[in-house]
Nucleic acid binder design. Structure first.
Lengths: 238, 238
DNA sequence: CGGCCTCGGTACGGTATCAGACAAAAGGGT
DNA sequence: ACCCTTTTGTCTGATACCGTACCGAGGCCG
């Protein structure tokens, strides 16, 4: 996309690049559709492309040898993948896939890597994003350890809401149960709790945020720290 | 410590630096004692020094606004702190402190930063470590979500054992309960389980690994993934 | 030795969540 | 319109873990 203008993109990392860096990169950016379930990166495999979403939400999921899994982070227009390319690590052991469909840009990692090596400012920018992502993972870990399912669900809905345009998030209970690493019926009852408090509407295949602020109050201890860290490092993204 | 020879250090990251990089750094390394409880870095504060432990174990702990806390990672001679300096992030929101006393080296972050900026190889080395650390955090998160307390305890003992010289690890149940984010009596009973299976001895203030291999088998699904990732990125460290 | 403080063991009731199964409802395709 | 699949709601019993409290045991100090 040689003619993509930086002010027109929505991905926060692309927006934050210096004009010089952006023009060097944009020559190689291809727009891509990111349908639900699309694999941005597979565990232990070197990714061919780096992705910068414009819309939609991606999940990063860790899987244990015996097949247990849990989501350790999400990102949308606030981020990119793979972090491994920023850290000279080649691959990482996670599944990264689209959870809410969208679109974005991709660039071959073979092209991105040399750009990173010669452009310290770019490397620092993406480094700060990696920090934000890993802080998000850390607070997910804390939340998994100490918070109840309904609070974790509220946190998760808020994080998705931050990354979408409207108030609708379309996903099934089944899917949510994987993200939160709980039973599917536990999601159903937790959603009923949030609905009973008039924080959300819940319909088949879709959750609608009804009272964002009250939802934040409900999530209380579970939501906010990693968002503050992102803000400090990279500014607001919506 | 201008006369520190690279082959004599035990910290794996220092060992892996190129001789040129090491000699540039070693001029500024000061040896330091790291007593139990020593704060390597405080939340939201820019660290004055970077630390490279030679012995002992440090914990990285996240705290929620309401004061809940959980350990998200540990490191000893396999690592360093703060990761933030590698990622141009200034600070991070965690408490990092010595959990098992030891010693190591420190270098002023003001001196380390310019070295990182001009030495891409060094930045990549520490970048790979940051990846290893964040993978460790991710699997901690998974473990918090899906594994039982006794398995998580076994994992945790194994991770400490990897980073110490003998088979003894000295810490109290109280301390362990904070690390695992569980009640203190839950630690007591979980330790009894491991002891009953003859995997460890447990005495006042100290845990002794008795059958390392069986302990790994017990931890099974909880232990190993992040260790494999470290090995891939940075090799063995003991 | 006696006192004290830290640390570890145990007990009791309560509950969040699990495991598994089943049934009702909502769509989609032919 | 119908069937068939996907998604959601609900039930039943089990259990892992919690909050709290209390007591014994080990180590340290005068």
């Amino acid at each position: 996309m040689a003619d993509t203008r930086q002010t027109a993109v929505r991905n926060n990392l692309l927006r934050l690049m210096s004009p010089a860096t952006f023009s060097a990169i944009s020559a190689h950016l291809e727009p891509v559709d990111l349908p639900r379930g699309f694999e941005l990166s597979e565990p232990h495999e070197e990714a061919e492309y780096a992705y910068f979403p414009e819309t939609g939400i991606a999940s990063i999921v860790a899987r244990s040898p015996q097949g247990q899994h849990a989501e350790i982070g999400i990102f949308g227009r606030d981020g990119m993948t793979p972090a491994a390319v920023v850290l000279d690590a080649g691959s990482d052991p996670f599944s990264i896939f689209m959870q809410v469909e969208g679109d974005g840009f991709r660039i071959s990692t073979a092209l991105l890597k040399p750009l990173l090596d010669q452009d310290g400012e770019l490397k620092n920018l993406l480094g700060r994003y990696v920090q934000a992502l890993s802080v998000q993972g850390a607070f997910t870990s804390l939340s998994n350890a100490v918070h109840h399912i309904d609070e974790r669900l509220a946190r998760w809905i808020l994080m998705c809401h931050d990354r979408t345009d409207g108030d609708e998030i379309s996903l099934t209970h089944e899917f949510l149960s994987i993200m939160l690493a709980v039973r599917r019926p536990s999601v159903t009852t937790a959603l009923h709790v949030l609905e009973g408090r008039k924080l959300i509407y819940s319909e088949r295949g879709v959750i609608i945020v009804r009272d964002r602020q009250a939802l934040e109050e409900f999530a209380a201890d579970a939501y906010g720290e990693s968002e503050r860290e992102y803000l400090r490092l990279l500014g607001p993204y919506s």
